[in-house]
Design a binder for these strands. Sequence first.
RNA 1: GGACCUGUGGUGCAGCUCGGAGUGCACGCCGCCCUGUCAAGGCGGAGGUCGCGGGUUCAAAUCCCGUCAGGUCCGCCA
Length: 579
Amino acid sequence: MTNPYESTSLRDLLCGSVTRLDIGKRVSVCGWVAKRREHGEHLAFVDLRDRSGLVQCVVPGSVDVRSEYVIRVSGTVTARPEGTVNDKLATGEVELTDCVVEVLSAAEPPPFQLDERSEVDELIRLRYRYVDLRREKMQHNLRLRAKVNATLRAAMDRQGFCEIETPLLWAPTPEGAREFVVPSRLHPGDFYVLPQSPQIAKQLMMVGGFDRYYQIARCLRDEDLRADRQFEFTQMDIEASFVTQEDIFRFVSEAVLDAAEMATGERPPTIERMTWSDALDLYGTDKPDLRFGMVLQNLSAAFATTEVKAFSAPVVKAMRVPGGADFTRSRLDTLTEQAKALGAKGLAWFRVTADGLDSPLARFLNDAEAAAIAAVDGAQVGDLILIVADEYELACKVLGALRLVLGAPPVSQGPHHYVWITDFPMFEGVDEDGYLQAAHHPFTMPNLEDIDLIDTDPLKVRSQSYDLVLNGWELGSGSVRIHRGDIQSKIFTALGISDEVAESRFGFLLGAFKYGAPPHAGFAFGIDRLTAIFAGEDNIREVIAFPKTQSGADVMTGAPKQITERQTRELRLKFAPKA
RNA sequence: GGACCUGUGGUGCAGCUCGGAGUGCACGCCGCCCUGUCAAGGCGGAGGUCGCGGGUUCAAAUCCCGUCAGGUCCGCCA
């Protein structure tokens, strides 16, 4: 049906909007030639495609168009003759007849076929992205993304949040991710950086009295790319004052679950919670995929006094692989190699058979040890038990990685299982100078119950920070921020940041806090990742119009490129020879 | 910085293990035929630096070394 948002001076309605209700009307549609089928000089079919779909146009006579020509077709909406209805096509009950075709733009044959019959190499898709974007999947994914954005905005607006833009040209703050730098023309030798996130800006908004801020913010990090990481990515960035972690959970849940309901038609009833230490202990990661079991078990007690050398370690962790007893020896060898690549000294495996455990190590076990292994996670005959004995965190992480290799369903499958991960450690390890390293960022509020541990056992200090995880993807993270100078000083001292350094890097923030900083907390989550999961894509490039390759190249524009001599002169840049 | 996988007409593949003429399949493209197709059909045709460089060999798409590009992962991503 025609609607005022679809009709233009050139067209009356979209190809995919033609329905039985339009029968008898003379209409014009515009689009790209998806397919032409000629039947001699008296009859030709043209499938016309626009963003909404396809419609078949019947031309009385031959027609001089080729694939991807841009044309305008005027024809009469007609019910298809009996026996020619195409139920594979949304518009398959109707067609345009007595069509007049006007070529708006001729086109060379496309560099690849736009139907979905075979996967096209991504490099070629990216080189001709403007063609790739015509494909139904890309149209769907980018429109889904737009609807995710709109839904999130509506949810934040409804909750009283104010959308505020913050600068892209910002001051260097050499903490955390590597920053993209921008040379200043007016101040030669000085640089702006592109923000890795609007973290400090949004905290300043709190001091500025905008007690509920949000922004769909572009973040830029000059770090190596991955399937779920691009240089530039988009976050729903949130900060609020006079709140606790609980309030942030409520705000974010409302927005995320609205988006989930929009995208999937189903609203998850709740978002579960799990502490960071439970996540590591049970799933071997801080971003557990809760769509499936294979929970890690601790067998340390059973092996406390073991004679088996391979199991004499701080911790013995085990995982059951349902039905894994039929893995071939070479598959088990591959798993062992993967475990070693992740840092394990080895991987022990035990097939659970009707005759007991089958393993090269089986004969070294005493009865109690064998019984403990055979009982892992309710093991049945036909299962496989994998064991890593090592330092606690390493054993957990190795098995956690193997758990994903062996059990994780494809992104497009299974329920959407959201979980808040809470009580992250405040610090993780020490840097080369012996100072503690912040696990989140240096403005993260420690759990006040643990504040005395900063001096005695700092690695045990929990922070008031939290992640939101969906099906094994880290969607985002946030924290309660420090708004008190005394606590901030204590943290800076622990991190080895002197007063002078703190002043030079964050002086404007610390200065602002002297003028009345409300208690505040915030969160940010990745819209690329959220949309990718909604779209069933295992790669965020599929929900980004013009993504970069893993080496950071844009194969369409050729970026990064050299700049002109005039540009280097104006910026007073000189380049060292390539090493 | 590292590990692994991939690279063959415009596109997607097979060929590589075990060297023997650029061999094959599907789609697309070009021409002709065709009045109800919709993965249209029939006949004919064009199209190749087997990513690039080097080596081994009488002979390399195939074996070896290097390199480039793409992908997945580790490191990195407060």
